[in-house]
Computed example of a mutant assay.
Amino acid sequence: MTHLVSVAQLLHLQRSAEHGAGPAVRLLDVRWRLDRPEGRPEYVRSHLPGAVYVDLEHELARRGQPEEGRHPLPESVDLERAARGWGLSDGDIVVGYDDNRSVPAARLWWLLRRSGIDARVLDGGIRAWVGEGLPVETGDVRPAAGNVSLHHHDDDVSLNHDGVSLNHDGVSLNHDGAFDVLEIEELGDFIEHGVLLDVRTPEQYNGTRTAGAPVAGHIPGAVNLPAMVAVASDGRLQHPDVLRRIFASAGVDADTVVGVYCSSGVAAMHSVLALEHAGIRARVYPGSWSQWSNTRGKPVAVGILPSGRLTTV
């Protein structure tokens, strides 16, 4: 299943839609950075024609308590309401993009794919579009409301032996068996039989930088592989062959049980996108370090080794 689209592929999808030979294509602009979370000013100044702005902080996350992490997953009903506000209808293809190496766009992709929507990421984002000499527009696009119905994940689910979410009738909730979450209570057992990737910077991992967390370090047993090693110098994801070599350096291949976390559950979803692009299934721990470091009694490892020097929150 396609997760990334190039500029040429996006243009092809749009032409097909215009000629009635394919589904409608909806462009969503997810401009966001940790140091500048409100991306609407940049969007208003310049965006792909017809693109609708998505507010990551308020539409792709919900306000929660510190012990839930900085960016808790939105409730399904709230995400559906937001998606209809973006003009999405059933059957649409959604292409998200940003100006930050596809990190925030990957959060949109993960949430919508998990909810049964054909969502993709424009590889290289707005810079790739502009680099092809294609037009941009200014102002704010306010679409007519759509009628999309998202799959709701708020009911209790179980996992089968392959890590696929099942409802009470044993029916798969994921179209391709991916996009499952790791809860904080699962991590101890998970590390015993899988690889947990910490995709923050080495300084955050080894404990020399806190980045706003109450304590510094990493989850004991986690392996450090910074998210940005998956990105080429032009802002696009590395070729799948290159990605497979990168992940192999951390002990991960297509047969590995993999979990991913970051600071607050945004960059982790970008790493899941990179893993999917390499043909490797992974689960994300949405609470990430912002939840773990706010949970009393949790162990913390400090240093460059997965085991590290242990302390507690």
Rank of each mutant, 00 (worst) to 15 (best):
G125N: 09
V103A: 09
V95K: 14
G116M: 12
P135K: 05
S115W: 04
A106P: 02
R142W: 04
H153R: 05
A145F: 06
E183W: 10
L150C: 10
S89W: 10
E132Y: 08
V136A: 05
H175F: 11
W86N: 08
W109M: 02
A178I: 00
R114I: 02
G87K: 09
L159S: 11
G146I: 12
D140V: 14
R107K: 00
L159N: 07
W109R: 03
G91T: 06
L134C: 08
D155M: 07
N147R: 11
L108R: 00
T138I: 01
D118P: 04
I184R: 11
A119N: 09
V121S: 02
I117S: 07
A178T: 12
S172W: 06
L182K: 03
G139H: 07
G85K: 10
L173C: 09
W109Q: 01
V103W: 02
H151N: 05
G87Y: 02
G96V: 01
S149A: 15
E183I: 00
N167I: 03
S115K: 03
H152M: 06
S158H: 08
A106S: 15
D90S: 14
W86H: 13
G131D: 13
S89T: 14
R142E: 10
A119I: 04
W129E: 05
V130S: 12
P143M: 09
A105I: 02
D90E: 13
L159M: 12
G96K: 03
G139T: 13
G139L: 05
G163P: 07
W129S: 09
H175R: 15
G116I: 00
D176M: 00
I184W: 03
H152Q: 04
H161Y: 00
G170L: 10
D180F: 06
H151R: 15
H175L: 14
H153P: 15
A144H: 09
V141F: 01
D90Q: 07
T138D: 15
L108S: 02
G163E: 03
A178L: 04
D98M: 01
L88P: 09
G96W: 00
